[in-house]
Amino acid sequence: MKIDRRSMLRSLLAVAATLAFPKILFAARADKAFEATTSDEAIAELLGAVPTASDKVHMKIPDIAENGAVVPVTVSTDLEDVESISVVVDNNPTPLAASFDMSPKTVAVISVRIKMGQSSIVRAIVKAGGNLYSTSKEVKVTIGGCGG
């Protein structure tokens, strides 16, 4: 029931958006991608292809997390026609953390904060002009405290 209602709300929103501004269409949440337990699976489910590494995708994220429960990440890109930006944490139980559907009206910069249970590769994936581009970085989650 819950899901139904949510889907319905979403459809209504989508319909309303389509009516008012026919050019911008947002898809529904890819629930299966969020349930996937590997990065590859999540990316395939969400985006349908394998991204290529690109120096035009930029990710600001700490090398060592101050708090694994709150890891700030900012993704930006120099690419044109950005359709979506996604953040994936390889070693999380469900790696897909967040995905943002962009429009021509948004600047291609997004900040969000994610949870990391342990040290992991974090990936930022940008869909632009129908193609997938990515960058990645190791983020360390440590017990800390014995140094200084």
Binding site: D63, K140, G147
Partner: peptide
Amino acid sequence: SVADNLFHTDPYYQQGG
């Protein structure tokens, strides 16, 4: 963990203690 903070091959992952 502490050894990694000291001897990680990439200094950005070290803490300097």
